[in-house]
Nucleic acid binder design. Structure first.
Lengths: 177, 177
DNA sequence: GTTCAAGTAGAGCGATCGTTTTACAAGAGG
DNA sequence: CCTCTTGTAAAACGATCGCTCTACTTGAAC
């Protein structure tokens, strides 16, 4: 059970789910994407659901790091930076929509998957609120972030501009309290 | 090819997809939900993908009617009413998330499905903008509506309050122009 | 040198899937 | 009376699925 093998597998799994969604790729496609034998794949992830879960945990770590590491110290700049990073992520890594929602939709009766989705969204909103000095507005931030993620696939960078405008509105409204 | 049979089928199909998602129900489950024989089902909808498409077209008509018919004449009230109707729809009809995004995620290579998704979202945003006197802010409205739909499953009615606040911000910002 | 964990390649299992087909029933029109 | 349409019930098809299992290789440790 080497750690390097595990991360190699999970990286390949994530790529496969990003490219093909959760409905299409059979376990043999996943095996090919992971670059190992079927036996080894099942040793590390003993079911297809475990493969999905492993891929999403890996993605969560990558996403949080890319979105929230090294943000500008100024709260206003930090908020715009988060929005830009979300759009950049969509552009390069998630042009088919949020992988976590997609996974829950594909396997609706997995409690573990649902819990991971909630943890993922909660952590992103909480840490964005902290960086943007918007504690107490987590619900509004979640809404903007979810809206940006979903509507980026529809409207592209126009969605990014809309998110920035709404973020500015939120900061202004908060300042008037 | 009677029309009443077709609407009976499509109503059952929509219910099945709402309850069970798009991955789980096999064609025989869909047949049971539609309340007809397999032969009849295939006569009206000659493939599983056609069944999905039919169910979504039916849902689109119902959604647009429920969201946009008989709105208050005052633009400000109309906007809040749309948000409340979205939340009400989620509460009673879509507690597992937007069916259109779910369908595209489940069948990612169906061009017809993708086109239907875009038509659906575009029509809702455009008509909401018209009712709320926010023409030119369709991207912001799409973002809020998508965000409300997605984050309602995470935060419930707190998402509704957030949408109303952001909507008010948008109206105020527009008024200052 | 032997042992043992960790890997590959690939055949095979039972179940389920979407779809087609066969056999039959009921009501309407000429 | 016969035929056509519209429907039901259910068997059967080939394909594919998730998963297990057998047989073999490799590299490092003791």
């Amino acid at each position: 059970m080497s750690d390097s093998t595990r991360t190699a597998i999970v990286t390949g799994l994530e790529r496969a789910f990003v490219c093909q969604g959760f409905a299409r790729p059979g376990v043999d496609d996943l095996r090919a994407a992971a670059g190992v034998s079927l036996r080894t794949l099942y040793k590390y992830y003993p079911s297809r659901e475990a493969m999905i879960l492993g891929a999403l945990e890996h993605r969560h770590r990558r996403y949080v790091q890319r979105l929230l590491d090294g943000l500008p110290a100024d709260p206003r700049e930090a908020l715009d930076a988060v929005f830009e990073r979300v759009a950049g992520w969509m552009r390069t890594e998630a042009s088919h929509g949020c992988l976590f929602h997609g996974a829950v939709a594909a396997v609706p009766d997995s409690a573990a998957l649902r819990e991971l989705l909630e943890r993922h969204k909660e952590e992103v909103a909480r840490r964005t609120a902290a960086a943007a000095d918007l504690r107490g507005c987590e619900a509004e931030l979640t809404l903007i972030l979810e809206g940006l993620t979903q509507s980026w696939t529809l409207n592209g960078d126009e969605a990014l501009r809309a998110a920035k405008r709404l973020g500015a509105c939120l900061v202004a409204a908060k300042g008037r309290n």
